[in-house]
């Protein structure tokens, strides 16, 4: 293979990373603060909430399904963790939220995995239902953590050796999720269900359980994100998680995980989410208005997915 075709092959396989590196070089050349460890950690810290949710949603997407309820779920769980912190203390509040996240995921999983309803509509319905449940729980009021000195602040605000705790939580969770997806029986069945559900059932695998568990994981990951969120804000509003479902999905798609299911990985999701963070951060450092990043995100999503698809298909146009 000559050199130019080797380059083409590299771009095809890792086009996203190449484009990302070019972006980083361009921004670094124009902003001295961009390429610093402090700034990098800052970006990852800012993306840790979206990132946590995305870890769970990745499982769901690989089974070939959607979870649009995570934004509302994030709101509800954040409100609950903050409120329960005041009511029963931080320890029990953490437990409640983690269990609560799994229960909410299980409801999705039951309706989608076991009853076989359409995932898009079920999670949309849950989005609405959980918004209502949040208002019912909070009575419409914002909640704040009364005890400002609580150790609960650690999850969102603490640092260990100058590394923000949310970054550590996110990266550790990503490592665990990656292990689960790549190395375990469960992970294997997630890919199998998304790749070919019929063949998976013909292999004696209960695909319903796999789908159910993927949604439970999505709920659990959202609970983790809610803990970081509550801890960082030390309070919660009733709209705090609005729109997260779509940002998360954008990150997952940007990483190259296909919405058809059967392919994708945790590291790709992490990459996609962090890239979104860097685009945001880089554009701000270059002095563009905040919302220009959304325009750029639009362009990047279309370009990345299109090129990915074109490379798999062998030609750019369908």
């Amino acid at each position: 293979m000559d050199r130019s075709s080797a380059v083409i092959a590299l771009v095809r396989r890792h086009g996203l990373i190449v484009a990302f590196l070019i972006f980083i070089v361009l921004v670094s050349a124009n902003s001295p603060t961009f390429l610093t460890v402090g700034n990098f950690l800052d970006v990852i810290r800012q993306t840790s909430i979206t990132g946590m949710i995305a870890l769970g949603v990745t499982f769901v997407v690989i089974t070939g399904r959607f979870d649009l309820s995570v934004g509302s779920m994030l709101t509800l769980l954040t409100v609950v963790v903050v409120d329960q912190h005041n009511a029963v203390g931080p320890g029990l509040a953490l437990l409640f939220v983690l269990v609560g996240g799994m229960v909410l995921g299980a409801v999705n999983g039951l309706l989608i995995g076991f009853i076989g309803l359409n995932a898009l509509i079920v999670t949309l319905a849950m989005l609405s239902f959980l918004q209502g449940l949040t208002l019912l729980y909070s009575g419409g009021a914002n909640v704040n953590i009364a005890d400002a000195q609580s150790w609960f602040a650690l999850f969102g605000r603490g640092t260990v050796y100058n590394i923000p705790v949310p970054v550590l939580i996110f990266l550790a969770s990503a490592a665990a999720a990656s292990f689960l997806l790549r190395k375990t029986i469960f992970g294997r069945t997630v890919y199998a269900v998304g790749g070919n559900e019929v063949a998976t059932r013909f292999s004696g695998i209960n695909s319903r359980w796999t789908i159910f568990l993927a949604y439970v994981l999505s709920g659990l990951a959202t609970a983790g994100a809610a803990i970081i969120m509550g801890s960082r804000v030390m309070g919660a509003q009733n709209t705090i998680g609005q729109g997260y479902e779509l940002t998360v999905l954008a990150g997952v798609v940007l990483g190259g995980t296909s919405l058809i299911g059967g392919s994708g990985s945790i590291w790709r999701t992490v990459l996609g989410i962090i890239m979104l963070g860097f685009i945001q951060n880089g554009l701000l450092l270059l002095g563009y208005p905040y919302y220009v990043q959304w325009l750029v995100t639009w362009f990047v999503i279309i370009a990345a997915v299109w090129i990915d698809l074109g490379a798999k298909r062998g030609r750019l146009f369908a």
Partner: peptide, 20 residues
């Protein structure tokens, strides 16, 4: 033209147009 899922394309557009 791309053969991409309309969900992905319009999700991108949702974010971008709102940014606009």
């Amino acid at each position: 033209l791309s053969g991409m899922h309309s969900f992905v394309v319009t999700l991108g557009a949702l974010i971008g147009i709102r940014g606009l």
